[in-house]
Amino acid sequence: MPRHINTLNGLITLLNDDPLASSPDLPVSSVLAQMIETVVKTTNLSININSTTGGVHSPRSFHYHGQAVDINRLDGKRIDDVSNAANVQVFQQAVAAHADVAECFGPFICIRKRGALIEQRPDLRIRHLNHLHISSQT
């Protein structure tokens, strides 16, 4: 059953990086919502989600099914802020270790797809230096 992601008293925000575009605070898969909330609580790192089911993605993207989010800020800083690298790595590792993860694309080697680790391809990394793309299997 789709639901909104719990903001956990402000630890999670849902703000579009384009202020003129629509809000990403939309219902998503309950499995995805639970996974994101769990990782935020576990790492105690705040996040901003800037895309859920909106935006333009790959034709077979999990976004269109409410199974993916993009995160552009972590602990109050941009994902590509070099001073944030350690936090980004910790967050990606926590996501990749979650049983329900399908994809965990970002600047660090943490891609996991449907339970199987896959190699960090340079072309994927280049497209995910400034945000994390995280999806769930259901």
Partner: peptide
């Protein structure tokens, strides 16, 4: 045939 995902 295709997987789901950004890079299926």
């Amino acid at each position: 045939v295709s997987e789901l995902g950004e890079y299926p």
